[in-house]
């Protein structure tokens, strides 16, 4: 997998942003301090320029990554975990349990996501915890669906029956025999969930529904708009954050593709890793 060019680039991008988020804040200036002239373009003193309040954009971009990625990771972990537990339970137990859980999943799925998020976020006190709760509440149903479908198909496979005939207990069949088969699916679900959590979080904060005093990628963009970045032509106030989001998302997408191919051998067979089935050459007798 590491041999795959896309995997290497994706991994480098994602790990790069993660290390920036973890270590970067130790090396940059206070992102909230008023350090220089407002809306100064990039220079030797301020690599990415300054905001309308004279804050260092470079420091804000680096520090903003920490909060955004932390909340996104927690949300992704929670949504995939809740989705996997509920989906696997529904599929393995079947019957009434399955019907009720599937109904709940479908109800959550038909609710319009973004408006719901906006409404919930507007009612709860702003902050990273609210953000995490809102995104987790609206994010888990897709994963429940995916895992339910996977477990339902695995459950009817003969190797489960074979393990039963050998005398394995139910919990051991689920944990030892079934779960490793879900690893690739859970991995690619987690990547998708990260992407969703970053996007939705930044979107909400851009709309002003987050904690405006915190420094995150979303509030960076909110303040850039608030300071009329486009009118004044101060592109440096929003481009670094935007590019960061795009590059992180790109890295995740690349990893997601590779994992998808691992989870779905049919994709791998015709994927970018090698030429697909070639048409049989036909020799014409009549020239």
């Amino acid at each position: 997998m590491i041999a795959d060019r896309r995997a290497r680039l994706g991994l480098a991008l994602v790990l790069g942003f993660v290390s920036v988020a973890l270590l970067g804040p130790l090396f940059v200036a206070d992102p909230s301090a008023y350090l220089g002239p407002p809306l100064a373009p990039p220079s030797g003193d301020f690599w990415f320029g300054t905001t309308g309040q004279g804050q260092d954009v470079f420091a804000q971009t680096v520090v903003g990554a920490r909060s955004t990625l932390l909340v996104a990771t927690i949300v992704a972990g929670l949504t995939v975990f809740i989705g996997a537990v509920l989906g696997a339970t529904a599929a393995y137990l079947g019957g009434v349990v399955d019907a009720l859980l599937s109904l709940a999943v479908n109800v959550f799925l038909v609710m319009p996501g973004l408006p719901l998020i906006v409404v919930i976020a507007a009612f709860l006190p702003p902050g990273p915890v609210t953000m995490g709760v809102v995104l987790t509440l609206t994010g888990w149903p897709w994963h429940a669906r995916v895992v339910r479908a996977q477990v339902a198909s695995l459950r009817s496979r003969d190797f489960v029956a074979a393990a039963q005939v050998s005398g394995e207990s139910t919990w051991r069949i689920v944990v030892v025999e079934l779960l490793p088969n879900l690893a690739a699916v859970l991995g690619s679900s987690f990547i998708g969930a990260l992407l969703y959590a970053v996007g939705a979080q930044v979107g909400l904060e851009f709309l002003g529904l987050g904690d405006l005093n915190a420094v995150t990628w979303g509030t960076n963009l909110y303040w850039a708009t608030n300071d009329s970045a486009l009118l004044t032509g101060s592109w440096w106030t929003f481009v670094p954050t935007g590019a960061g989001i795009a590059a992180f998302g790109f890295g995740l997408t690349l990893l997601g593709f590779v994992l998808d191919e691992r989870a779905n051998p049919r994709l791998a067979a015709r994927g970018a890793t090698g030429p697909g089935p070639q048409p049989t050459p036909v020799e014409r007798a009549d020239g």
Binding site: R157, D158, F159, A161, V165
Partner: peptide
């Protein structure tokens, strides 16, 4: 379970793909 054992029709489906065949 010890006294009655079953051999399945499809040998590909009755072996868990993530384990070496010594496992079952």
């Amino acid at each position: 379970r010890q006294r009655v054992q079953l051999i399945f029709q499809d040998p590909a489906a009755s072996l868990n793909p993530v384990f070496p065949v010594g496992h079952p």
